[in-house]
Amino acid sequence: MLDINTLSVLIGLIVLGATSGVLGTFALLRRKALLSDTLAHAALPGICLAYLIGGKQLGWLLMGAFISGLAGIGVVSLITHRSRLKEDAALALTLSVFFGFGIVLLTGIQRWGDGHQSGLDRFLFGQAAAILPHEVAYLTLACLLILGIVALLFKEFTLICFDRDYARAVGLPVRLLDALLMGLIALIVVLGLQSAGALLMVALLITPATTARLLTQRLGVMVALSALFGTLAAAGGVWMSALYGRLPTGPVMVLLASGLFLLAILFRYTRHRLGAYR
């Protein structure tokens, strides 16, 4: 029933779901929800360029994705600081132009080179079943590293989310911590590309965190709940996509996470109506 491949993918995605749930909480509180969407879309040209430059190794492709995602963030901040355009325009512009360029490269790779064998499409909608066991090992390792950093700096990250002035006053390097947090978010987005896809990775980050936000006011509980919801969505996605054959994993995970969100909204509403909550 459960062969070794599916099992390893399941383990990898559970860790991925939990990590993106944890980081999603901070992304949400730092109002980076749409920035992470832009980041995920902006990763596409990097993947294609890395493929064109040298080979198909996953680590190399993801490195390209990471660099071009960060370049996308750089462009957004350049536009918002150095022109009269506002953040929403900068986000939409960067997202669509980077993605358009990625599509140009993607179609180019398909037509110039070795045809459809490139398999780069899996980064768009996600195909968890295509992840190999040794890739799962690296994925898990990277996620554990991220979780470790967040655990070490939990107090600092909390402070820069809620009270930046105080954080500055007690001498924390606020900008450095901000950059570190953004780097970790970029890292998890890139790690998730293979299973959730560039188009829907933002939901894996944001939806569980928002669901948790509906249910609790305490940060520790919120992070834990968000990780739990991310895990449930990811595990359910792998399970259903193994069950029903070649379903793209990304959309299934997102719909499961959205289902949990809907339940949380209903729960809040009924509690509110019953008067238990105020």
Partner: peptide
């Protein structure tokens, strides 16, 4: 309460889009 516009947007469009992609691929 407790919802920001950017999160509301991200959740809604990704859910709709995921549904569309799933329908197409299925």
């Amino acid at each position: 309460r407790f919802m920001r516009p950017d999160a509301a947007m991200g959740i809604t469009f990704s859910a709709f889009f995921a549904l569309g992609v799933l329908l197409i691929s299925r």
